[in-house]
Simulated assay, not measured.
Amino acid sequence: MSVRARIAVLPPGTHLLEFRELTMPSPGPFEVMVEQSAFGVCHSQLDRIFDSSRTASMLLGHESIGRVVAVGAEVTYVQPGDQVCTTWIPRSPREGRPPLPSRLTFPDGDVAASHNCYTWGTHALVDEQYVVQMPDGTDPDLGSIIGCALMTGAGAVMNSIDLRPGQSVAVWGAGGVGLCAVAGAAILGAGRIIAVDVSDAKLALAAKFGATDGVNARETDPVEAIRQLTRHDDGTAGADFCLDCTGIGDNIPVSLAAVRPGIRGAGVRGGTDVLVGIPRKPFSLDSFDLLNGEKSLAGSVGGGCDPVRDFATFVSWTNDGRFDPALLVTDRFELDQINEAVDALHHGRVRGRAVVGVRELE
């Protein structure tokens, strides 16, 4: 089967992607070839794009929706024609076999590789563990953001904390992942949901996802603001849970400080601060605040999601109207505009999620 593809490649020594065409190789035994419909542009990809230490070409992107066009001889989970989402969290191990990153060799001999999967192009050839079968007719906006933004943000609320109805949640960063965390908290019954950002426009958007309060950290002390909003009958103040979706090291001790402390001698532990965004550099904590407040600091990778189980939940949220993926997709681009999409995200012009629509190669 001959499939012509157009793939975005990031050469070493530059932060500008270029498109290359090739005839896709046949899938290996455990590979799946996906014809892409749409994909998201995630902030974590900027770390790779602007990494000056890169010495080889890269394939980027890790959330998309499309259809299977070919499968390897050992693949039984999907077949050609199936609608699937691609995601960077492996679906499930196959007899202990770790998923393999993708590699493509182009006509000029250059070899480009992904960190895990890749999605920025008309087609993707990825390990079967990075694809999740979706119901026919899945909303394309949902499919383009489910594999990272929704999974990471809402998943952290579902899987990484023990949220009980009425408890308070503060979310640092009201970008794509943070908005999904806000939505997840609202859907799962949180009482007070506080969005923290430095952009009033993003805070206004967070309100549409269920935030009861917005705090502009550029204009006010977010810790004091959260404590004022979350006073408890036992005399403590602070959010039951804080989720840091920024990955900015300086924010982490601040979000920890905004967590509700425990009560020593009464057997009441403090709240939890969850690292959802990927810290880009080491950070320091107030160890006394962590210890004396009997608080917890936890990490959440990909929202702790089981993609097959949790993607079905996200589809149900969309189908019954509890989550509107079109509201999250604030910026839309075509494939040829991939560098414009990256630039918009890099300079903070994307309020929610940027999505690239893919047309068939002519």
Score class of each variant (00 low, 15 high):
Gly270Glu: 11
Ala237Arg: 07
Arg269Thr: 15
Gly247Leu: 06
Ala237Phe: 03
Gly270Ala: 10
Gly249Thr: 03
Thr230Trp: 03
Ala239Arg: 09
Val254Lys: 12
Thr230Ser: 06
Arg231Met: 10
Arg269Cys: 13
Pro222Asn: 03
Val268Phe: 05
Leu256Asp: 05
Thr230Gly: 04
Thr230Lys: 04
Leu256Gln: 07
Ala258Lys: 12
Asp234Leu: 08
Asn251Ala: 15
Leu229Gln: 09
Leu256Trp: 07
Thr230Met: 05
Asp240Gln: 08
Gly262Asn: 10
Glu224Gly: 02
Asp233Leu: 14
Ala257Ile: 00
Asp250Met: 12
Gly262Ala: 11
Arg260Ile: 13
Asp244Tyr: 09
Asp234Ile: 10
Val254Trp: 07
Thr246Met: 01
Asp240Val: 09
Pro261Ser: 07
Pro261His: 06
Ala257Pro: 01
Asp233Glu: 14
Leu256Gly: 03
Asn251Phe: 12
Gly265Met: 06
Val259Lys: 13
Pro222Val: 04
His232Tyr: 13
Leu229Thr: 02
Gly267Met: 06
Asp250Cys: 10
Arg260Ser: 12
Arg269Met: 14
Ile226Gln: 06
Cys242Thr: 15
Asn251Val: 11
Ala257Gly: 01
Val254His: 04
Gly247Phe: 06
Leu256Cys: 08
Gly238Asn: 11
Arg231Val: 14
Arg260Lys: 15
His232Asp: 08
Gly238Trp: 09
Ala239Lys: 11
Ala266Gln: 15
Arg264Ala: 14
Gly265Cys: 03
Val259Arg: 11
Pro261Thr: 06
Arg231Asn: 00
Ile252Tyr: 11
Leu229Cys: 03
Gly262Ser: 12
Val223Asp: 05
Ala257Trp: 00
Ile226Thr: 02
Ala266Phe: 14
Cys245Asn: 09
Thr246Asn: 00
Gly249Ile: 05
Gly249Pro: 06
Leu229Asn: 02
Leu243Tyr: 01
Gly265His: 07
Ile252Lys: 07
Cys245Asp: 07
Val259Ser: 12
Glu224Ile: 08
Leu256Asn: 05
Arg264Met: 12
Pro253Ser: 04
